[in-house]
Amino acid sequence: MAIQPLNSFAEEKTDSAAAPAESRMALNYLCSTDSVNLSATLTIKRGDMTLALENAVVEFTASNGTTTTILGTAKTNQEGSALLSFPSALLPTDKDGMVSYMAKFTGNDKYPAAEATSSAKPAKIRLFFSIEDSLRILKVTATQKNEKGEDVAIPKETVLIYIPRLFSLLKIGEISLDETGTGTLEFPKEIVGDTLGNLVVIAKIEEHDKFGFVQGKNVINWGVHKQYYKAEVPSRELWTPIAPLWMIITLLVMLAGVWAHYMYAVYELVMIKRLSKKDKPLF
């Protein structure tokens, strides 16, 4: 799909409109178990201002130097990020197993083209859970493909263990892999999971020269069951919309008492008025 004509405000209406627009692309790469996730972020720099560009089409390609595969296209979101996921089995690799990725924005009459590249070798991290001597053990293995396409260990790397949370990843430990690409961690207690105690656990190799970002993911019910905050439960507090019962009763009793007396006084006045009518014939 073609990019819509860019009728951006930045062109005509801001002070820095005079400055030429400069497109910038950043490409982030993440290899998860069976796929690679690419995220390209497109920003427009104009003078001192930086804006994310939304709805721009970014084309992703992968190459091994000889052949180039078009992985697909994606549109940037509100934050200027275009996301694409692609099965790692279909990637073209060179003799070292490396893949070169490229994200490309072809540009249009208002915004110049931009591209970014990144290269990495696909790898895999797997997570296994076991209970040994009543200890909860998380085991992690990291593998890569050799020339024959067999899985072989990634030795001596550091793997970080995270739990995804609402705003960010909570790091719960670090594992140093041994020669066989394996490492273990005693799983910490008192990590809050969902209401059933389920936890998503993520193991990551980060910013590796060769592998880039690699992550594996698994789910286990070792979490503490999440207790929802029960703000709905107190329904008759001072601060809730509905008042405590005693307060309503006290108020009603007092009001009823007072107004009943008022009514009585008014009734007496009415009676006084009536009496005068009755008396009238006498005068």
Binding site: N28, L30, S32, A52, S81, P164, S168, I202
Partner: peptide, 12 residues
């Protein structure tokens, strides 16, 4: 992002 794509924190 939760799954770990390091999307720049300097975003707008």
């Amino acid at each position: 992002a939760g799954a770990g794509v390091a999307i720049g924190s300097g975003l707008l």
